[in-house]
Design a protein around this nucleic acid. Structure first.
Lengths: 202, 202
DNA sequence: AGGCAACTCTACCGCTCGGTACACATCGTG
DNA sequence: CACGATGTGTACCGAGCGGTAGAGTTGCCT
């Protein structure tokens, strides 16, 4: 498995985390199926056998890349849920994700969306992995809003599940817009409007 | 060419509109790159040379399919812009698109999104065609809202462009959610929330 | 009837895909 | 220093890709 240093044999000439980040960027830009092994290995700076020895297969590489993406980029947005109020949590979630979708040293948009919504028949489980990642984020949002409801932090009659879905949906739409070239300011203006639907901070 | 009946030579054994609709469904389900010629021709019920004689190339077939999609499915949602008020236009637009994304005799989601957000380097213009289609719809929404502003049908200070982008963004997010299995009712609940941001009818 | 134009069908093209065999290089250990 | 274990590099595999050649088929026109 070669996760911990083996202490015997020829040592690896690359840093696994570094090449994984480079692979992530290729998947992010071209999607799972659009990322060929030639492009991947060129960006990672290693050869195919090294890639296969370290990651097993293209799909396994993608899963690792997506997991790492989730632990870093998506976690930034999820940190918004630590805000003290539901309103603040939603606002920070939408603003920080809008920011992450359009700025920074990486492709525009979101790997969870760019990775591949539609796939050829033999790769449908890749799309499912991505959908599961998005659903997990929505679930976290929903739990945060349920807690807010229990704390009296949401107006009576607000459906936490529907509100979480609304927020997540908007964020996904922003990802689509960002990939098509929308600016951060444009997305933030959209967030301004969405927040009017959420209600005043309480 | 063969768009009008040529009156000479062997007549075509298939209806161009029918096979184009079948191709549309394959692209819709698998995306541009995920739709192989084998799957396409099998679904269309014709052989490759017939496909190439009638449509020229896979990309040209896709453009035709997308154009037809726009003239039919997207046009249904666009018809919402004929509503007498801006609020009604937005509501009907969102509700009818949510409906179209989840019901009917076709794949879930939207071809403009499923077709391919991310592509391999040689197919980037396919993604651009799809983005241009979405931008055209957003543009139509914006123009409708500008008209509403001129008619005093929108509260003062409302940014028609931002509002159009918000509505379109939500609809794109709904397309992502629909492809992942969300029900029509779930999307409609999200529309309920969004409409709170738009303001009262009037 | 005969000729020609358009369409259909089988079988193939070159290319790229994801994945791998095998020889060689580089390490720790006896 | 030889050995075994592991990583690297080249060159390759079968399969599937988008696209097409060329022979055979079916119609209208004179």
């Amino acid at each position: 498995m070669s996760r911990e240093t083996p202490a015997i044999g020829r040592p690896r000439a690359f840093d696994e985390a570094v090449v994984l980040d480079r692979a992530t960027e290729v998947f992010w830009r071209h999607g799972y199926e659009g990322a060929s092994l030639n492009v991947l290995t060129a960006a990672m700076g290693i050869n195919r056998p090294s890639l296969y020895a370290a990651f097993g297969s293209k799909e396994e590489l993608f899963r690792r890349a997506f997991a790492r993406y989730h632990e870093t980029k998506v976690a930034d947005a999820r940190a918004a849920l630590d805000q003290p109020t539901a309103y603040a949590a939603i606002e920070v979630f939408l603003r920080s994700s809008a920011n992450g979708l359009t700025t920074g040293d990486h492709p525009r948009g979101c790997l969870s969306i760019q990775g591949g919504l539609a796939c050829s028949p033999e790769n449908t489980h890749v799309a499912e992995v991505l959908a599961a990642g998005r659903a997990a984020t929505e679930q976290a949002l929903e739990e945060r809003l349920h807690r807010a409801a229990a704390e009296g932090d949401l107006p009576d009659g607000v459906d936490a599940r529907a509100l979480a879905r609304f927020v997540m949906t908007l964020s996904e739409g922003h990802a689509v817009h960002a990939a098509a070239g929308a600016s951060c300011e444009e997305l933030q203006a959209s967030v301004d409007i969405a927040l009017r639907a959420v209600g005043r901070p309480g």
